[in-house]
Nucleic acid binder design. Sequence first.
RNA 1: UCCGGAGUGGCUCAAUGGCAGAGCGGGUGGCUGUUAACCACUAGGUUGUAGGUUCGAAUCCUAUCUCCGGAGCCA
Length: 431
Amino acid sequence: MPEYILAKHLSKHLNEEVILKGWVYNIRKSGKIWFLVFRDGTEFVQCVVLMNEVSGEVFELKTTLTQESSVMIRGIVQEAPRQENGIEILVKDIEVIHIAEEYPIALKEHGVDFLLDNRHLWLRSRQPYAIMKVRAEVEQACRDFFNERDFTLVDSPMFTPNAAEGSTTLFETQYFDRKAYLTQSGQLYSEAAIMALNRTYCFGPCFRAEKSKTRRHLTEFWMVEPEMAFFDIHDDMALAEEFVEYLVQRALKNCRRELEILERDISKLEAVKRPFPRITYDDAIAVLKRKGFDIAWGDDLGAPHEPAVSEDYDRPVMIWRWPAASKAFYMKRDPEDERYVMGVDVIAPEGHGEIIGGSQREEDIKVLLERIDREQLPVDDFQWFLDIRRYGSVPHSGFGLGLERTVGWICGTHHIRECIPWPRTMARLKP
RNA sequence: UCCGGAGUGGCUCAAUGGCAGAGCGGGUGGCUGUUAACCACUAGGUUGUAGGUUCGAAUCCUAUCUCCGGAGCCA
């Protein structure tokens, strides 16, 4: 291993001399003292350069070092109560690795478009840095959660031969001498996989060619989708609830520093404990009517409705038992009332919207064929999917959790494009 | 696709019909405890594009392009 240490480990080296390698985040100059805010991708730390502690050459670097220049710093780790992390470096020596050209991103407010054009550099800033750390933790937590609960990772293909649900728009791509589509969900494949492996999850990018221009939409986003044999809708909701609680608690446990950088109100996250409220679609309609919304049974819950329902709770709310007409063909009908399907949406608090969509799946081939027929879906393309119901069909359920929306909620970001390293939206394909 | 908003220096914005400005960033100088440090000086402009109205347009009109976020749809 190299002899330098990572800044995140500095607190273990109090009063010792250490070597750091990284970048200049900011410089504040005074006469015979200057301050260099150093970052190495693991932590930010202030370094103090005093005239009588370093050579004249090193002291004069205050005039040549620029924002984002790369450096090696040798210095002593000191306690500094005034610093956010309680530590600073008394510099003994600085070795310049590269002097950066004039850096486009100043330490001030910038427009979103400018920052996204410079995403490759913007990632170095504090907030994107912290969000990427949280994203990585949430992603790892997803894998840990399912791996610890007897799930097998079975990833689904990105290229698909046809529309899975028909309704959403798919990206079309040339696949040798025919068309293929980019996947919008791994669910149908997971339904097949659980008949082999009982409980599975897939985790990867999904693509939606919807012309959505809102802060909750990306054309490429990541979704984690568990699928479980022998789970009914209630088992499904219990798992979703446990999963969301787990993700939030993991972030609280392992991302304290990052949430601090993001100035996230921790108490809002600490409130996210089971049980989550469960209300039916009918309940939601009643609540909305009471709040004065002009809404009728059968209407889908749109943008003003979701927050109106979730604002009554300090934790995610699960809305289940939806009108069949508004939901996908594969959802299981309520045996007690055919007008309903056993679907569930989980709405995050604080206006962050839907983070999970799930359902018990229809296991009866006759019912499934009816729905495929009524929605005029190409039945031939679904023969393999129907096979699942031909050979030992069982009740089963699953859900999909949108990674960026979840990370956006945990981090309290305004727009989910900040929650993916290289966002793809309708208007943005670069960098 | 529809509705709304915005395009002015590298960046963030001001100037609402009358000399295009400020802050940040860049440059120069000053300061031994700064926290997006501060102070002084300095360089930097075809006001998205094309037309029009006017003595005069960043500003008003027409067209057009781009972006933004909201609806629909959804994770």
